[in-house]
Nucleic acid binder design. Sequence first.
DNA 1: TATTTTATGCAACCGAGTTGCACGTCGACC
DNA 2: GGTCGACGTGCAACTCGGTTGCATAAAATA
Lengths: 145, 145
Amino acid sequence: MSAPTLTSSARNRLLDVGARATPAREHVLEILLAATRALSHQEIEAAARKQGFNFDRVTLYRVLDWLVTQQLAHKIEGQDRVWRFNAITVTSTEHGHAHFHCTRCGQVFCLEQLEPSFAVTLPAGFRFEKAELTIQGICPSCATD
Amino acid sequence: MSAPTLTSSARNRLLDVGARATPAREHVLEILLAATRALSHQEIEAAARKQGFNFDRVTLYRVLDWLVTQQLAHKIEGQDRVWRFNAITVTSTEHGHAHFHCTRCGQVFCLEQLEPSFAVTLPAGFRFEKAELTIQGICPSCATD
DNA sequence: TATTTTATGCAACCGAGTTGCACGTCGACC
DNA sequence: GGTCGACGTGCAACTCGGTTGCATAAAATA
Ligand SMILES: [Mn+2]
Ligand SMILES: [Mn+2]
Ligand SMILES: [Zn+2]
Ligand SMILES: [Zn+2]
């Protein structure tokens, strides 16, 4: 049960966690691994349909939740009340959860490379668990229009 | 049309922006001003009902939106797909939008005092607009239980 | 007062996510 | 291989936060 590497396929990642590699799980994880940004439920559904794989909405929600509990994906909440998911790779496992939300097209990008260093001193009595930093702005493809 | 100060009443703030000071607006703004944290639609509705003032859900949504456009309140999105609002005071107008979300009771606190200084270098092509920093953890009242 | 503007109430709607339950499928065990 | 239990999937109905359209009420303006 070695840690999944960047090169391991969706199927191998699933087997690595000692779980059933069902078609739904494989397809979803593949889509997430291929994506360059965090994908919403709708985007994942569309991507799956485009490659001829179709399944129920609910199944997708359950697969995504399951991937999160297995630490194969992580889930972020956007400004638009929509959850987005991206696959966790060795380089992203411990990232500082900095995300970029394009205010024009709504796409969400994970900013894995930059470790967000923020200086926050909480008022007395507050116990820190984790921080989430979201940058809003215009994404490259929207900026060139 | 002077800038509203910390001591001005809800009514005065409304008149300051040259708007109708309707009962709904007054009550909602009063509730927001009295709160020590950001309030959800439900919390505001409950607070209003408790002081004998009742109105339609939709009216509340519209009043809150209006307060935001008038820069009398600001709106934040929590991890629970719920919007929360708090009154803008002179000290909070230009705050850096740092918020604390209690993972146990769900309450959201504005961390006005601390200017969240984060060093983020966006990848090429991304245009910065604003940053939002949310700290998750346990709030004082939950921590003592 | 009459006219126009703006706020409120009500009902129906929307979209993301959830729940319950029946059915299918897989793996384990005999 | 056949039987069983565990688990994954599909379907329908539901929840919940938030919106929209439209009729009515209440201010502002004249
Ligand atoms: Mn991420
Ligand atoms: Mn705030
Ligand atoms: Zn964009
Ligand atoms: Zn708490």
